[in-house]
């Protein structure tokens, strides 16, 4: 069982996202540890990319802040190294394919393995292109997480059958970001997935309140929250620990 599966071993999983280097590398290390303490089961660390076409404005701006601060792919690995000195929380990296391509697939996934990164989420790597990294990621024991969207329809089974780690169920059309309402038939999507695989499903895009989290967790094995967390960091800068702890605890409590 990969470490990612462990994240789903204690009831519904709370998956938290934050952008590496926003506002600083030291803050990111501390925030990851704080978020884990507050009950997060898996933490997604965003490697900032200049042109994140699947992100809403909150994560776009966090990415640009991190890049302005000098964050690099190597810098993200150093953050992971620091975290791993104190924590064994399951970790996934989230980024676009170009930074991975430039680091070199072999070098990237071998680094992931040696530092204990369990998975990677790449929004611009659909099923058709996963051959780009599939073999090398598997060789280094890193799960390439598959995304399934409201438009996936007959592709759901195709994607789910080969999914590794967990399945990222995209709750809504468009980009990441807080939404007041999620209108997709999530229940139907998850049932379709479960017909072909027992790989856990986590729902992301648009979730920010404990009520939404509780509702979504009812359909699946976990929920993913990004923009709401990044917003807290944007608001509190280098002093976000307390608010992060309070927020993540309330979200985890809501889905237990």
């Amino acid at each position: 069982m990969s470490k990612i599966r462990e994240a789903f071993a204690n009831g519904k999983a709370f998956i938290a996202f934050l952008t590496a280097g926003d506002p600083t590398a030291e803050c990111t290390v501390n925030y990851i540890l704080e978020i884990e303490k507050a009950g997060a089961d898996l933490i997604e660390i965003g490697i900032p990319f200049s042109d994140p076409t699947a992100e809403g404005v909150v994560i776009q701006e966090a990415s640009l802040r991190a890049l302005k601060g000098g964050m690099t792919t190597e810098g993200v690995f150093q953050i992971v190294e620091e975290v791993r000195k104190k924590s064994q929380v399951p970790l996934a990296l989230m980024t676009y394919l170009n930074p991975v391509f430039h680091y070199g697939y072999e070098a990237f996934f071998s680094r992931c393995q040696s530092l204990g990164v369990d998975g990677i989420i790449v929004p611009d790597l659909p099923f058709e292109e996963k051959g780009e990294v599939e073999e090398v990621a598997a060789r280094f024991g890193v799960d390439v997480v598959s995304l399934i969207a409201p438009t996936s329809k007959e592709r759901i089974r195709l994607i789910a059958k080969e999914a590794k780690g967990f399945i990222y169920v995209v709750s809504s059309m468009g980009v990441t970001g807080v939404r007041s309402k999620i209108t997709t038939d999530i229940d139907g999507m998850v049932k379709e997935i479960r017909a072909v695989t027992d790989t856990p499903c986590a729902i992301g895009f648009g979730i920010s309140t404990p009520e939404q989290a509780a509702e979504m967790a009812g359909y699946a094995d976990g929920v993913i929250v990004g923009s709401a967390i990044v917003k807290l960091i944007e608001k509190n800068g280098a002093n976000a620990e307390e608010e992060l702890y309070r927020y993540v605890s309330s979200m985890k409590a809501a889905i237990k």
């Binding site: 394919l97 399934i148 438009t151 592709r155």
Partner: peptide
């Protein structure tokens, strides 16, 4: 070339 695009757009492409 290729189709390096989010899953949301794949069916439409």
């Amino acid at each position: 070339g290729g189709q390096y695009i989010p899953e949301t757009l794949m069916n439409e492409l």
